[in-house]
Amino acid sequence: MDQTRALLEMYADRGPAWRAAIEAGHDMSLVEQAMHRTFEQRIEDLQRAIDSLAALREAVIERAAAERRTPDATH
């Protein structure tokens, strides 16, 4: 079963806006999860998301630099 169908079944009792969001491709289980957090927790989640994405970007940059130094050393 694809994700959209699974989500539509999972949230069969929800309203039209929720179903429209699922049909547009949103994974509303993630939204549901976020809605059980407090405002303060969500702001902290955002900071952690920013930090982790920045760390990932830094890792990509470091890997590219390592590949330039020793092209055969990384895979």
Partner: peptide
């Protein structure tokens, strides 16, 4: 789209 669903 997500916000409308959240509001609902």
């Amino acid at each position: 789209q997500q916000l409308r669903a959240i509001r609902e």
